[in-house]
């Protein structure tokens, strides 16, 4: 518990100070320990509630219902699709933000990461006004191609991508910034084209961050609610994702809501385990 108890190395003053701080975890002052404990209890108690109130006996039957499997399947594939889109267009943007230099770069960075802090439901309204049937772009998609996006799985993927992609962008951009550009320069002087440098040197260097950003993006997409229900609506099997199914289940079958929540809790724990090397070690910076 206390790693330095050797009395010879402490002055009288130090001993006195340590005595007053309650001897808690490495001598944390009580004034910090008490609120910290409140925070821990506050964060963990709801999860405990979920576990205690879980309908363990009915769990199997609830989770094998077709509606539930449908929602889970939809959530899993749309979140994966959203992550794939984010990787395809978000990583190049992250590179641009980290390496390029042009006027308005900082403004652009702020704008594209805005969805991080934007309430998702606002994102949903915005998507509707852009890609809805009466939207500034959606109107022409409808008129020219007969394509209407809202209320389709595509709308779910778009809503999830809108909300989740910035997580990938800032993670990868941060890694690109701190990566040693010497290797890229060396590759370039050895004759590699700029695209080859990006593919063979830059990407592998930021690989771990890329993976972490993708997992984070996927988790955020999986949990998306506000933008999805606003832009994609809700219909079982087509646009009703797990979070929406949970929201409605609370009105009809609270046990089912708890069971579905457990599934997402399990997924979240898995995400944390996947990212543990990145975040759960104090020595690693973002």
């Amino acid at each position: 518990m206390t790693r330095k108890l050797a009395p010879t190395r402490l002055t009288a003053g130090e001993r006195a100070r340590r005595a007053t701080i309650g001897g808690g975890a490495r001598g944390a002052p009580a004034a910090l320990l008490a609120p910290a404990l409140v925070a821990v209890v506050f964060l963990l108690l709801p999860l405990l509630g979920l576990l205690v109130r879980a309908p363990w006996g009915r769990l199997g039957s609830i989770l094998s219902e077709p509606d539930v499997l449908q929602a889970l399947e939809l959530s899993l594939w749309t979140a994966t699709a959203a992550t794939a889109v984010a990787l395809m267009v978000g990583v190049p943007l992250a590179w641009l933000l980290a390496r390029a230099s042009f006027p308005g770069l900082r403004l652009l960075r702020a704008l594209v990461t805005l969805p991080l802090v934007l309430p998702p439901v606002v994102g949903g309204v915005a998507l509707l006004l852009a890609f809805g049937r009466e939207g500034i772009v959606g109107k022409y998609l409808d008129q020219w191609f007969g394509l209407t996006i809202p209320f389709s799985p595509l709308a779910v993927v778009m809503a999830e991508t809108f909300v989740a992609m910035p997580f990938l962008i800032i993670t990868v951009e941060g890694a690109l910034r701190t990566a040693d550009q010497g290797f890229e320069e060396a590759a370039a002087t050895l004759g590699a084209s700029r695209m080859t440098v990006f593919r063979r040197v830059t990407l592998p260097m930021v690989g771990p961050s890329l993976a972490a950003g993708a997992v984070l993006c996927w988790a955020r997409a999986l949990g998306e609610f506000g933008a999805t229900i606003t832009f994609a609506g809700s219909f079982p099997g087509r646009t009703e994702t797990m979070p929406i199914a949970i929201y409605y289940a609370l009105e009809t079958d609270p046990d089912a809501a708890v069971a579905l929540s457990l599934v997402l809790l399990l997924v979240s724990v898995a995400v944390l385990v996947a990212l543990r090397d990145r975040w759960l070690r104090s020595s690693v910076a973002t």
Binding site: L128, G132, R133, E134, P150, F151, I229, A232, G233, S234, F235, P236, T239, E240, Y247, Y248
Partner: peptide, 18 residues
Amino acid sequence: VTEEPDVKSVLSKVTLGE
């Protein structure tokens, strides 16, 4: 195409023309 949380949400999907 969608099952909305309440009647006003249904109405807003109509007024928006969606």
